[in-house]
Amino acid sequence: MVSDQEVYRGLLDLDWRRRPGQSYRILFTYLILIVSAAVFLLPLLWMVTTSLKTQAEVYVFPPTFWPETLRWQNFPEGWTYESMQWTRWLVNTLTITFAVMAGTLVSATLCGYGFARISFPGRDVWFVMVLASIMLPSTVTLIPLFVGFHRVGWLDTFLPLTVPAFFGGGAFNIFLMRQFFKGIPIELEEAALIDGANRLRILWQIFVPLSRPVIATISVFTFQAVWNDYFGPLIFLTSQENYTLALGITFFKGLYSTQIPYMMAMSFLMVIPMIFVFFFAQKLMIRGVILSGIKT
């Protein structure tokens, strides 16, 4: 990653004598960039510093910026605080996340291939319906789904959160897959078809290996969405031992709203995987946005 060093070098490069107008402009751009970066990063930094303060230090005004002593114990103490079951909630969150990722990848690959490479009557109608469903407010289906899951006894299990992923895996992901598959040269496929390979095998042996970037992109988006999801678990999970991390944090807030350092520590723990995923997949995510071809 490029760091402040490069910013510094950029400032040194300015040639004040020859192009004063241009130099002022760049300086001004940096000024705005630096101030806005501070505004965006400061809250996150505040979360980290608060998570390392003592309970007493949090309740002073004006607040101190750096903690007097770095209280790392907040993390293990918050993790095992009273009736909190963070380990269990982490396992639940991971279980749901990976189940949804598996379902999403399998079904988005199949559907994306069907929409991109096979022509059959009714295909475009279904594809338009898939796209339209992106814009549907989820509350319209929420209540019958709740009633339905209630009837089949799925409430307070992970099934309402995971099973739908195996049926389509999200309209946007199908769309991404289709766009990508459409770009793969047809000759590859025709040769294999003439050789008598069936389509599932073609998909698995030709398309999937070529599609690593889009598969990675969808994995990242899905991981992020499920890890962060709050509404789904709130509606469908009720008993404490089935909570996810997101529900756990609100539960903690409801019981011990004054335990600010613990709360910040737990919130920050929930952010860490996202930061890793982001640095790991920054390029992929931006490419995913471009791939979706929003411009046209």
Binding site: M1, S36, A37, F40, L41, P43, L44, W46, M47, Q224, W227, N228, Y230, A246, I249, T250, K253, M263, M264, S267, F268, M270, V271, M274, I275, V277, F278, Q282
Partner: peptide
Amino acid sequence: TSFYMPAIVPAIASLIL
């Protein structure tokens, strides 16, 4: 990265913050 970072923070964590 700085500008995008808040967008990846889980909504619940950013609300608490």
